[in-house]
Design a protein around this nucleic acid. Structure first.
Length: 528
DNA sequence: TCTTGCACCTT
DNA sequence: GAAGGTGCAAG
């Protein structure tokens, strides 16, 4: 384990953890927006005037990298018991000190595979389960001024994960043994430029080193579990000093008949001596994987997964299923509630409640148009763009190069995110979203625009897929302000399931307010 | 594979 | 002292 860390850090972890170093490194590595050259940054943003300079730095990136190298596992429980570890903290710069922003985080599928841990390594074992309804974790300080966000680290450590599809607490719902990618979204929420205005904008930041596999119990005991125990203060009790072991074992033996074998010893036996980097896995420890080529799409070209994610030695990333972090060209038509004053009202109301639940059930996110854009296969990635540009189901599938939309930049070896591009979000809160369900969709409609089955799709199937589940669940709030539910329709195979099974039917309207960022591809109504 | 109760620990 | 985060092992 240690050797792996060293190997990794040598070439790929220039930042020793200090943000200053990250900043410095980032300044060197950052690429101007719109370049197609490799980018060290790990984010995709939608640029709007005045937001181009936003940068996000991952705090303790070296720790994330260390975990990623081993293969980050995040425990998910029904109760959403556990926090993420390492905790997700970022430093944000480049914000307008006086402008208000909302910071959110979501977790989207990194690919469409199900994984298994065998022979001391992760491997693909099948196709992923239908994605859970996407949810956004709205930072409790939101909305706050740029000055506030830049004043100190922004922590998302209280975000919790669950595998309970009916989770009523607003926790992020994930599937066990699936790989996920956390994302940070910064949304401009200035009063003078609030949701609904044509100027609302947001940017999304992705740190690929924060990708993880959700598990109900740790799989990689030897590497991951030990590494976490060593780094998480709450797990101090499991750190292996001989005294501790003896004490613990004696205690356990006093109550139960456990063999007197130190846990650490047991753990050592559990894992094979084989390095998780062996085999087909591509280790992060190589420069090439850590600083992959990130075809930063100029105004909107999605990068593929191999571009996006440094391939961990523990995370096999089949090339044939490169995940794509969508690019979205947001010029959405607000055929739904556009100009609906009630929507804005809701927004304002929630703005006043600073003590909202972390998973603020506010229309903020709903109006953000953020989608829990899941994975996308290489094929789907194109489809996604196609959907975005041709909601009518055009046959022509533009290549990535053809698409002019924002894209996810690659991960920065320095743990920083540049803001290559930010897309203006016109009429964001009221934008019309097609019923296309695209897992990779960056933008989805949250809320007001959400549950709107778009008749414009010209695709009765999609609309139906979308509407039925919703109505069946008694949501009936699809186009209503603050409904908080998006109205996705399954455009991608299997995703329809999400809408019929992924959304808890028992949730009260209030619960639905928990920001559902169900993946939704906003309609790219450039021509409509 | 997942859930639960436990002891230990930090906050 | 309370609340809650933690991994473990049994089931």
């Amino acid at each position: 384990m240690a050797d792996q860390e060293e190997t990794f850090s040598l070439e790929n972890s220039p930042a020793a953890g200090s943000e200053s170093r990250e900043v410095q490194a980032e300044s060197k590595a950052e690429k101007p927006s719109g370049t197609t050259s490799k980018s060290p940054s790990s984010q995709t943003t939608f640029i709007q005037q005045g937001m181009e300079g936003i940068k996000v730095y991952l705090h303790e990136r070296e720790l994330w990298v260390k975990f990623y190298e081993v293969g980050t596992e995040m425990i998910i429980t029904k109760a959403g018991r556990l926090r993420m570890f390492p905790s997700f903290k970022v430093k944000v710069t480049g914000l307008n000190p006086k402008t208000k922003y909302i910071l959110l985080m979501d977790v989207v599928p990194a690919d469409d595979h199900r994984y298994k841990f065998a022979d001391n390594k992760w491997s693909v074992t099948g196709k992923a389960e239908p994605a859970m309804p996407g949810r956004l974790y709205v930072h409790p300080d939101s909305p706050a001024t740029g000055a506030h966000w830049m004043r100190q680290l922004v922590s998302f450590q209280k975000l919790k994960l669950t595998n309970n599809h009916l989770d009523p607490f607003g926790h992020i719902i994930l599937n066990s043994m699936h790989k996920y990618q956390p994302r940070i979204h910064i949304v401009k929420a200035d009063e003078n430029n609030g949701f609904g205005s044509k100027n609302t904008a947001f940017c999304t930041h992705v740190f690929t080193e924060t990708a993880f596999i959700a598990v109900t119990s740790y799989q990689n005991h030897k590497n991951w579990t030990q590494l976490k125990i060593e780094n998480n203060p709450f797990a101090k009790g499991f750190r292996g000093s001989d005294d501790m072991e003896l004490h613990r074992m004696s205690r356990m033996q006093s109550t139960k008949e456990y063999p007197v074998v130190p846990r650490s010893t047991v753990r050592q036996r559990v894992g094979s001596s084989q390095s998780p980097f062996s085999g087909e896995v591509q280790g992060l420890g190589t420069q090439s994987t850590l600083t992959p080529q990130y075809p930063q799409c100029e105004n909107g070209v999605s990068s593929t997964s191999q571009d996006m994610l440094p391939q961990s030695g523990s995370y096999p990333v089949p090339h044939e299923h490169a995940q794509d972090y969508h690019c979205i060209k947001r010029k959405v038509e607000d055929d739904c509630h556009s100009g609906d004053p009630s929507y804005k009202k809701t927004y304002l109301e929630s703005s006043s409640s600073e003590d909202d639940h972390y998973y603020r059930p506010v229309p903020y996110a709903q109006s953000l148009g953020l989608t829990a854009g899941p994975y996308r296969t290489e094929t789907n990635q194109r489809q996604a763009c196609m959907y975005a540009s041709a909601p009518q189901g055009a046959e022509s599938v533009p290549t990535l190069e053809d698409i002019s939309c924002n894209t996810w930049a690659g991960v920065s070896p320095y743990g920083t995110c540049s803001v290559p591009a930010m897309q203006p979000m016109e009429r964001l809160p009221y934008q019309h979203f097609s019923a296309h369900f695209t897992s990779g969709s960056l933008v989805s409609r949250l809320g007001g625009v959400g549950g709107h089955a778009s008749p414009q799709l010209g695709d009765g199937h999609h609309a139906a897929m979308y509407q039925n589940p919703m109505s069946h669940q008694g949501l009936g709030r699809q186009c209503s302000p603050g409904a908080g539910i998006q109205s996705p329709t399954g455009s991608l195979q299997g995703n329809e399931y999400l809408y019929t099974h992924g959304i808890p039917r028992t949730l009260s309207p209030h619960q639905y307010h928990a920001v559902h960022s169900v993946s939704l591809m906003p309609e790219w109504n450039e021509n409509s």
